[in-house]
């Protein structure tokens, strides 16, 4: 156990945690405004693909990220129409959306052929040993925390999620606030997907996210809908994932599938510990102005 090993491990943990941090920030923003963001997984998956497509098409990762962010925002708007403008059951729409995205992304991947399957070049700019995604993830966690708890619009957003009727009585446009929150949330989820495909694995494969959107949700529950605690929880999951990949390489006797289970088992344990969390009161409830 030397310093290089520890350094590598920290780097791997941060890299694994970054998609989860972005994903959980998306969930925090959406759920704080009162929309259940189970669609996190599907949005991440779509953005992971569009990030790769954009990077290949424009030949530049910055444009790829921008392209994918636009797609993410459109995705958020569509989801807002389905879940906020219409009084739909957000859980069922979210799960249906995720499954649709699994099909859509694997279809587009096949349409793209070999061009899409070849790896994306690793991002050139590094801060110390971390990619810009990693740095930006931590910066956005601080930013989201500041926005939600220290600014006026943040207070409005939280009040809509806590008690939509009272917020409406106070003159806040509930539907509009939730829609904007959903669009921003989906852009954060998109960043999570891109961090996964562009800065970590460098290639898109079928169902690349493998439930990371849900792990991010578990991090949110564990972190009590607080961006900073949530980020800490995401780092814990990231560490578990890095550990899983590392031990897989070290151990020849134990099946690697057992190590791949670690993040999911940890999620189960975390959900068991946190139990019924008191989140924002009006999350998941449709609001109809009467």
């Amino acid at each position: 156990m030397d310093w290089i090993y520890i350094g590598n491990f920290i780097q791997a943990s941060v890299r694994a945690a970054t998609p989860l941090v972005f994903g959980s920030l998306g969930v925090v923003i959406a759920e704080r405004s009162g929309t259940r963001h189970i669609s996190n997984e599907g949005t991440m998956l779509l953005a992971a693909l569009t990030g790769v497509i954009g990077t290949k098409y424009f030949g530049n990762m910055a444009f790829g990220v921008l392209f994918s962010l636009v797609i993410g925002a459109v995705c958020g708007l569509i989801l807002a129409i389905m879940m906020i403008w219409l009084p739909s059951n957000q859980t069922i729409v979210g799960i249906g959306f995720n499954m649709t995205m699994v099909g859509v992304t694997s279809y587009i991947l096949r349409l793209g052929g070999d061009m899409l399957r070849s790896p994306v070049p690793a991002p050139a700019v590094k801060v110390l040993r971390f990619s810009l995604f990693d740095v930006f993830a931590i910066a956005s966690a601080l930013l989201v925390w500041f926005f939600l708890f220290r600014t006026g619009p943040g207070l409005k957003l939280r009040s809509v999620g806590e008690n939509a009727m009272a917020a409406d009585a106070a003159g806040i446009n509930v539907i509009k606030t939730r829609t904007i929150a959903m669009v921003i949330a989906c852009m954060f989820s998109s960043l999570g997907g891109m961090a996964l495909s562009l800065s970590w694995v460098h290639v898109f494969t079928d169902n690349l996210t493998m439930g990371r959107g849900f792990i991010a949700m578990a991090a949110v529950y564990f972190g009590k809908w607080n961006p900073l605690l949530t980020t800490l929880a995401a780092f814990m999951f990231g560490g578990a994932e890095a550990l899983a990949l590392r031990s897989q390489a070290l151990s020849a006797t134990i099946s690697s599938y057992y190590f791949l289970m670690i993040p999911y088992v940890l999620t189960l344990i975390v959900v068991a510990i946190s139990g019924r969390m008191k989140g924002p009161q009006d999350t998941g409830k449709s609001y109809i102005r009467q």
Partner: peptide, 23 residues
């Protein structure tokens, strides 16, 4: 046409169904 396309049917009908009902 890649057969992966039909996986879309695992989710899309439900989304449309729920949206139609709530509309």
């Amino acid at each position: 046409v890649p057969s992966a396309l039909v996986n879309v049917m695992q989710g899309l009908p439900v989304v449309i169904y729920v949206c139609l009902l709530s509309l």
